[in-house]
Amino acid sequence: MKIKEIIVVEGKDDTIAVQKAVHADTIETNGSAVSFETIEKIKLAQQVRGVIVLTDPDYPGEKIRKFIAEHVPECKHAFIEKKLALPKSGRGIGVEHAAPEVIQQALKDAQVMLEPIDELITKEDLLHAGLIGGPKARERREKIGEILKIGYTNGKQLHKRLMVFQISRADFMNALQRVIQEEKN
């Protein structure tokens, strides 16, 4: 599978994992302190070929993603579920631990984060759905993120991601129904 866009990853091990999964070029941020030189490379890559941001599903990865989105807002974003980015043994979490087919699917599902225009799903909706402040809220948010392909978030981030990815109320409700049905089984 060949990818036209340039994939932004955190480091060399991520590049190796991506290149095992697809034929693609990468830009490495070399950790969470993304330099403005790297941002300029990402801007140029976006203009020439497009960019997909694929960072680790952890706090530093999310910090990198936000920084890039702030400076290069038209990039696509791909997410890997935490449970699919765990090493077979040892500690850590990251793209480098994901199977090639997981990386391929994440890249296929990549989406552009748009400026929120309308609040289709309110914070009250999230509260009533048990996605904020309830005993199963974290688990439900994790499952919703998987179903909607927007990654894991805390409650506040979930609301924002639903808006920036312009998730429709119908898609949100369908995902919620799936989560509730899984809980019953």
Results as ranks from 00 to 15, higher is better:
residue 17 A to Y: 03
residue 5 E to Y: 01
residue 62 E to M: 09
residue 152 Y to N: 09
residue 162 L to W: 02
residue 180 I to F: 09
residue 15 T to Q: 12
residue 154 N to I: 09
residue 42 I to T: 10
residue 52 I to W: 02
residue 104 Q to S: 11
residue 116 P to F: 04
residue 48 V to M: 11
residue 155 G to H: 06
residue 143 K to M: 12
residue 162 L to H: 03
residue 146 E to Q: 15
residue 46 Q to V: 07
residue 103 I to D: 01
residue 8 V to H: 01
residue 172 F to A: 08
residue 33 A to N: 15
residue 178 R to T: 13
residue 130 G to I: 07
residue 153 T to P: 01
residue 10 E to H: 06
residue 9 V to D: 02
residue 78 A to Y: 03
residue 159 H to A: 13
residue 68 I to N: 01
residue 133 G to E: 08
residue 86 L to C: 05
residue 62 E to Q: 13
residue 29 T to C: 10
residue 115 E to A: 14
residue 171 D to Q: 15
residue 127 L to P: 00
residue 50 G to D: 06
residue 80 I to H: 01
residue 28 E to R: 11
residue 124 E to V: 12
residue 162 L to N: 00
residue 10 E to S: 07
residue 106 A to M: 09
residue 104 Q to V: 13
residue 139 E to G: 08
residue 117 I to M: 13
residue 4 K to G: 05
residue 172 F to K: 03
residue 171 D to C: 03
residue 23 H to K: 15
residue 47 Q to Y: 07
residue 50 G to Y: 01
residue 149 K to V: 10
residue 112 V to C: 06
residue 45 A to P: 01
residue 114 L to Y: 14
residue 5 E to P: 01
residue 105 Q to K: 15
residue 113 M to I: 09
residue 163 M to V: 05
residue 99 A to G: 02
residue 3 I to H: 00
residue 164 V to N: 11
residue 136 K to F: 08
residue 73 P to L: 11
residue 110 A to C: 11
residue 112 V to S: 03
residue 172 F to R: 05
residue 27 I to Q: 03
residue 1 M to N: 11
residue 84 L to C: 10
residue 28 E to C: 14
residue 44 L to G: 04
residue 52 I to M: 05
residue 57 P to H: 02
residue 36 F to W: 10
residue 138 R to I: 12
residue 128 H to K: 15
residue 132 I to N: 04
residue 117 I to K: 15
residue 70 E to N: 12
residue 146 E to T: 14
residue 98 A to M: 04
residue 134 G to K: 10
residue 116 P to R: 04
residue 135 P to M: 13
residue 92 G to V: 09
residue 85 A to R: 01
residue 30 N to T: 12
residue 157 Q to T: 13
residue 120 L to H: 09
residue 51 V to T: 02
residue 7 I to P: 00
residue 65 R to W: 02
residue 35 S to D: 12
residue 157 Q to S: 13
residue 53 V to F: 00
residue 138 R to W: 01
residue 23 H to F: 10
residue 165 F to N: 05
residue 101 E to N: 14
residue 180 I to R: 07
residue 183 E to A: 14
residue 56 D to L: 03
residue 1 M to Y: 10
residue 81 E to T: 10
residue 112 V to D: 01
residue 68 I to M: 03
residue 155 G to E: 07
residue 90 G to L: 06
residue 79 F to R: 00
residue 38 T to W: 02
residue 120 L to V: 12
